[in-house]
C-alpha cells in the first residue's frame, strides 16, 4: 500500500490508521513515540513488554503484517496502514488459548514470563513458516529473544509441544490453524 507524503514539525501529532488484533484504530500520535509505547500506552495493550528498548532482548516482538518485528525499534507512525498482532491477539475472543500458548503452558516454558510475549510472537512466525523445525532451528530462530529465568530448555520444549498441538489441530481443518491462526 502506498502512503501519501507527510510532514510533522516537532510537537505536532500525525493521524494514523492501524489494525491491531483485527480491530481498526485511528490514532493521533507524536511521530517520535515508539510503536511499543503507542501500543502499550495509547492503545492500552500492555502485554507487549519493554526489556531493553534497543532491539536486543526481543520482549517487544510483535507481528507487523505477519512478520516479527521489534516494536521498540519502530515508530508508531510506521504502523500507518499496517496489520499488527500482539500477544493479546492470539487467544480466541472467548479466551481459549492459542495452541502455542497452550503448549507453552503445558511445557511450563516460562517463569516470570516477562519475556513470553516476544517468544510467543516469534514462535507464531517460526511455526507458520516452518511447521516442523528441528531443535537447532528452534534455538536459532529464538536466539533473538532473551530469557533470563529459564535456561531455554523449557521454551524449546514448549515449541516442540506446540508442533504437536498444531499438527493435531490441523488434521481435518483448514490451513488457518496450521499457520498458527495468524495471517
Amino acid at each position: 500500500m502506498s502512503l501519501p507524503s507527510v510532514n510533522a514539525p516537532i510537537g505536532q501529532t500525525l493521524p494514523i490508521s492501524v489494525t491491531i488484533n483485527e480491530t481498526a484504530h485511528s490514532l493521533d500520535i507524536e511521530p517520535r513515540r515508539s510503536l511499543a509505547d503507542v501500543i502499550r500506552e495509547d492503545v492500552g495493550l500492555t502485554g507487549t513488554h519493554l526489556g531493553c528498548e534497543h532491539g536486543v532482548c526481543g520482549a517487544c516482538t510483535i507481528l507487523v503484517d505477519g512478520e516479527p518485528s521489534r516494536a521498540c525499534l519502530m515508530l508508531g507512525v510506521h504502523a500507518d496502514g499496517a496489520e499488527i498482532t500482539t500477544i493479546e491477539g492470539l487467544a480466541e475472543p472467548d479466551g481459549t488459548k492459542h495452541p502455542i500458548q497452550e503448549a507453552m503452558k503445558q511445557a511450563m516454558s516460562f517463569q516470570c514470563a516477562f519475556c513470553s510475549p516476544g517468544f510467543l510472537m516469534s514462535t507464531v512466525a517460526l511455526l507458520r513458516d516452518n511447521p516442523n523445525p528441528t531443535e537447532a532451528e528452534i534455538r536459532e530462530e529464538l536466539s533473538g529473544n532473551l530469557c533470563r529465568c529459564t535456561g531455554y530448555t523449557s521454551i524449546v520444549e514448549g515449541v516442540e509441544t506446540a508442533v504437536t498441538l498444531l499438527g493435531s489441530s490441523a488434521l481435518g481443518s483448514t490451513g488457518d490453524q496450521a499457520t498458527g491462526g495468524v495471517a
Binding site: 507524503s5 510532514n7 510533522a8 516537532i10 510537537g11 511521530p31 517520535r32 515508539s34 515508530l75 507512525v77
Partner: peptide
C-alpha cells in the same frame, strides 16, 4: 527518542 521534525 528526542523530538524531531518528521518527514515521510
Amino acid at each position: 527518542n528526542p523530538p524531531f521534525n518528521y518527514h515521510r
